[in-house]
Design a protein around this nucleic acid. Structure first.
Ligand SMILES: [Mn+2]
Ligand SMILES: [Mn+2]
Ligand SMILES: [Mn+2]
Ligand SMILES: [Mn+2]
Lengths: 220, 220
DNA sequence: AATTAAATTTAAGTAAGCTTAAATATTTTT
DNA sequence: AAAAATATTTAAGCTTACTTAAATTTAATT
């Protein structure tokens, strides 16, 4: 499959699982940086190849085959991120940038070698789950957005759902890293802002950030 | 630059440095598996971009810029081969197959990280020299083809110049590996066949093989 | 409910990288 | 040196993945 097709189904999949907006050609176009017309064309083509269902003016829906393809690409993306992070200690932004390209030129064989080498990890360095070789995500995600946490409790950072360099730079600067521990000290304005304590620093985050930082409760 | 262009200049470079046939569009077409017409078109386009010199019916000649691009792609190819070989113990054929794709989707930044991680190696697992970040091959190659060796002498395998699975499988089976030691026990029929001893086995190789296996003399 | 705004689709066109077939030039053989 | 064989180039056309502009449909506003 071509790079264009792989990125297209992947973007649909991620829009469906992570975002609230509907999965119409226009929204996919925006994310891919192409015109609406191009996205509509592509949607029709992929429908004829049984990768998705397309009905005029309706949201796009991946078929099982399309979902499988998306998960296969996502698997490769996240395995690359895990490998580059481990070997070269590159930043979250850098590993994402490289993985975005490498994911399309990686055989299933090589993906399996990478996975094996890393001990078949279930999560990438962002905390995103890595689909297995059958295109299944077996892990149950119990994490919640920071905006939904409770004052006074301690949490472990489980996911940083972003592709944005600025965000990652901010995270790196403040110790906001997959696996690190934080205390939620205050929720402001109906959870539109959240104060946390990490490494003895107090940080106030607005909803742009608290909606994409996911955490798990701890027992302490 | 596109994959097509990178493979094109790389193929010209390799034809110039490794092969005896002239570097006309037809020969490049054959190696790339495209039509002569396509190769001629591409040659004209690359000439207009100052990557090579094109004159009707003449051999193609890379400009400095074209050569630099070729060496940059070759650097990435060989770094990938070295990394995959080291990490995953893949065969020479497998690492080549993957590198052929990955080489086009690798930033200079990532190439430098790979090189660094490997200790800036000067050779890949085939024994081919790895250009440095400036696109220079600093290593002086003193190796000779097995067909040009002398009876009774001991040599170290320095290069296996092939992309062929069958050849690599044969090599792997018989211990013909970069760095291994062999004794040339006999040269037959004006060096069209060569008998060597390796791991106490005698093997007779014909010129298909002795022309692509390179070795260095030892002092013993 | 009608009007306006926004999103989606259709239509027409482009560039890259190929193809095959025909025309032309070069190389080899006689 | 001519003829035949081979290689190269030109010409015409195809597919993929895009573009912009116009037409149409849907959604939002009054
Ligand atoms: Mn990523
Ligand atoms: Mn991608
Ligand atoms: Mn190789
Ligand atoms: Mn290649």
């Amino acid at each position: 499959m071509s790079v264009a097709i792989e990125n297209f189904v992947k973007t649909i999949y991620k829009n469906d699982t992570n975002d609230s907006n509907d999965t119409k050609p226009g929204n996919i176009a925006k994310k891919l940086g192409i015109s609406n017309a191009a996205a509509t064309d592509m949607a029709k083509k992929l429908a004829s190849r049984n990768l998705l269902q397309y009905e005029k003016y309706q949201a796009l829906q991946l078929t099982d085959e399309g979902t499988k393809m998306a998960l296969n690409v996502i698997r490769k993306h996240r395995l690359w991120e895990a490998l580059l992070f481990k070997l070269f200690d590159m930043s979250l932004h850098e590993i994402h940038r490289e993985a975005e390209l490498l994911e399309h030129e990686t055989s299933n064989f090589l993906a399996d070698r990478i996975s094996e080498y890393l001990g078949n990890p279930k999560f990438d360095p962002h905390g995103d789950p890595i689909p297995n070789a059958n295109g299944e995500i077996t892990t149950i995600d119990t994490s919640i957005a920071l905006s939904n946490t409770q004052e006074g409790k301690t949490y472990i950072i489980s996911r940083l759902m972003s592709d944005d360099k600025e965000f990652f730079d901010f995270c790196a600067l403040n110790g906001l890293k997959y696996g690190n521990s934080i205390i939620v000290t205050k929720q402001f304005n109906k959870n539109k802002m959240t104060q946390i304590t990490i490494n003895n620093n107090n940080i106030i985050l607005n909803e742009d950030f608290t909606n994409i930082i996911y955490v798990n409760e701890t027992n302490y």
